[in-house]
C-alpha cells in the first residue's frame, strides 16, 4: 500500500514538474523577488516550496530566460527576477505547447472505452 502511495506521489511530482517552469515564467512578466513570487504563486493556488523555487529561479537565470538585478529596498537588498527577451520567446512557445497538449489530453481523457 505504501509503495502504491509512493508511485502516485512520484507520478504527481513528475506531472507537476513540467508545469512548474511554465507557471514561474508566466508570473515573471512582472518583476518579482523570490519570496514575493512564492506568495504570488501560493495565492493563485500553486503551492511551491521556497527551497524548490529559489534554485529554480537561479537555474532559469543562468539559462538566460530571466534577467536578475540586486536592488536595495528597505530593510535589505533583494534580488529581483524578470523575463528576458529570450525568456519571453520561450514562454510563448511553451504556452502554445501546453495549450495544445491540454486540448489533446482533455479529449483523450473524455473518451469512453
Amino acid at each position: 500500500m505504501v509503495e502504491k502511495a509512493n508511485i502516485l506521489k512520484n507520478l504527481q511530482q513528475e506531472l507537476r514538474k513540467g508545469t512548474l517552469v511554465l507557471a514561474v515564467l508566466s508570473q515573471l512578466k512582472t518583476k518579482h523577488y523570490g519570496y514575493s513570487l512564492v506568495e504570488t504563486l501560493n495565492n493563485k493556488g500553486l503551492f511551491i516550496d521556497q527551497n524548490t523555487l529559489y534554485p529554480l529561479l537561479r537555474r532559469l537565470d543562468t539559462q538566460g530566460l530571466l534577467v536578475s538585478t540586486w536592488e536595495v529596498v528597505d530593510p535589505r537588498p533583494r534580488k529581483y527576477y524578470e523575463l528576458s527577451q529570450f525568456g519571453k520567446t520561450i514562454l510563448s512557445q511553451l504556452q502554445r505547447d501546453y495549450e495544445n497538449n491540454y486540448h489533446v489530453l482533455s479529449d483523450m481523457l473524455k473518451e469512453e472505452n
Binding site: Y33, G34, Y35, Q50, Y54, R58, R76, P77, R78, K79
Partner: peptide
C-alpha cells in the same frame, strides 16, 4: 546573500 535576504523576509 540571496538566501539570507529571502530567509529574513520569511
Amino acid at each position: 546573500q540571496e538566501l539570507k535576504s529571502l530567509l529574513l523576509e520569511d
